[in-house]
């Protein structure tokens, strides 16, 4: 069962903490007002491990932008080496789309905006 630990204060004595855990077989429930441990039976592994949702920027194929231009933009905006930028461009060309960057939402929104500034068709979706 997964559990979430909320530390309200950080003044607990480490020795006492060890003692509490050993006494409850590693599964403490409530410890005074210092440390509160809650259990969430419905929590999934996925929910508990993903603290910051990861998003990705997709570049879409279009009939106008030149291949060399797309490679240049990817190299300039993301610092990709020529080989990687070319590979991503070819994925866009052959498969219609390619995920060119990922990260927190604020970051990928700025990435998407910069791609739009260069006239590339780009959108954002969850990774």
């Amino acid at each position: 069962m997964l559990c979430t630990v909320n530390y309200r204060k950080t003044v607990i004595n480490p020795t006492r903490l060890e003692e509490m855990f050993s006494r409850s077989n590693g599964q403490p429930s409530v410890v005074g007002t210092v440390l509160i441990v809650t259990t969430r039976p419905s929590t999934t592994l996925e929910d508990s491990t993903v603290t910051t949702p990861v998003w990705q920027v997709i570049v879409w194929d279009d009939p106008v932008n030149l291949m060399v231009y797309v490679v240049y933009v990817l190299r300039t905006l993301f610092g990709y080496p020529k080989e990687k930028a070319t590979k991503l461009m070819l994925q866009v060309h052959n498969e219609g789309r390619s995920a060119v960057a990922s990260g927190p939402r604020e970051k990928v929104e700025m990435d998407c905006h910069r791609l739009h500034r260069y006239g590339l068709s780009a959108t954002i979706e969850r990774a």
Partner: peptide
């Protein structure tokens, strides 16, 4: 012309 001035740097950005 502009590509000639680009450093062929690697990046740690997690791209596709």
């Amino acid at each position: 012309v502009l590509s000639d001035e680009l450093p062929d740097s690697d990046s740690t950005d997690a791209g596709g």
